[in-house]
Computed example of a mutant assay.
Amino acid sequence: MTEITINATRFDPYKNFKFRLQWDGRYVAGISKVSALKRTTEVVTHRNGGDPSSSRKSPGRSEYEAVTLERGVTHDRDFEAWASKVWNFGTALGAETSLRDFRKDVILELYNEAGQLAISYKIFRCWVSEFQALPELDANANAVAIQTLKLENEGWERDLSTPVPVEPSFSE
Rank of each mutant, 00 (worst) to 15 (best):
G155Q: 07
R103I: 05
L69A: 08
E152V: 08
A141P: 03
N112C: 07
R26F: 04
N142Y: 03
F17N: 14
A114S: 06
K33L: 11
P163H: 06
T40K: 10
D51Y: 00
E136V: 06
E136H: 12
S84P: 09
S32Q: 15
E70R: 14
E157F: 08
Y64L: 14
G60H: 13
E63Y: 11
E136R: 10
L151S: 07
T41C: 09
A141I: 02
K15C: 11
W127T: 00
L149H: 08
D76A: 13
I6Y: 03
V28H: 08
E113H: 02
V44N: 12
C126V: 06
P165G: 01
I107P: 01
E172H: 09
S98Y: 09
V164E: 15
F89V: 13
E172L: 10
R10S: 03
G115A: 02
T68S: 08
S169K: 15
R125K: 11
G25A: 15
S161N: 12
P163D: 11
F11N: 10
P52D: 12
F124M: 06
I119D: 00
A29K: 10
W127K: 02
I123D: 04
V166A: 08
E154W: 03
K15E: 12
S98I: 05
D78P: 01
D24F: 10
E63D: 09
N153K: 10
A29P: 12
T68W: 01
K122Q: 12
L137H: 07
H75Q: 14
H46M: 08
T40A: 07
D105G: 11
F19Q: 10
R125C: 00
F102N: 05
L137F: 10
N88H: 13
R71L: 10
R61P: 02
L149P: 08
L117H: 02
K104Y: 00
F131P: 06
T9W: 03
P59H: 11
A118G: 04
L110M: 11
Q22S: 15
L117G: 03
D159V: 04
S98W: 06
Q132E: 15
R56G: 00
L151M: 08
A36Q: 11
V73D: 04
V144C: 11
K57M: 12
L93W: 06
A66R: 05
F89G: 06
D51E: 12
E167L: 14
A66I: 06
P59W: 13
Y111T: 08
G115W: 05
V164S: 07
W87K: 03
F124I: 03
L160A: 00
R100D: 09
W156E: 01
A133S: 14
S54A: 11
T2W: 12
E157Y: 11
E42R: 04
Y27I: 14
F131Y: 15
D159R: 01
A143T: 14
R47C: 14
E3C: 02
V34W: 06
A118F: 04
F17L: 04
A66Y: 05
I146N: 05
R125N: 13
N7P: 00
R125Q: 14
R103P: 05
V166E: 07
H75N: 14
L21K: 11
L21H: 12
G115E: 05
V166W: 03
K38R: 13
I4P: 00
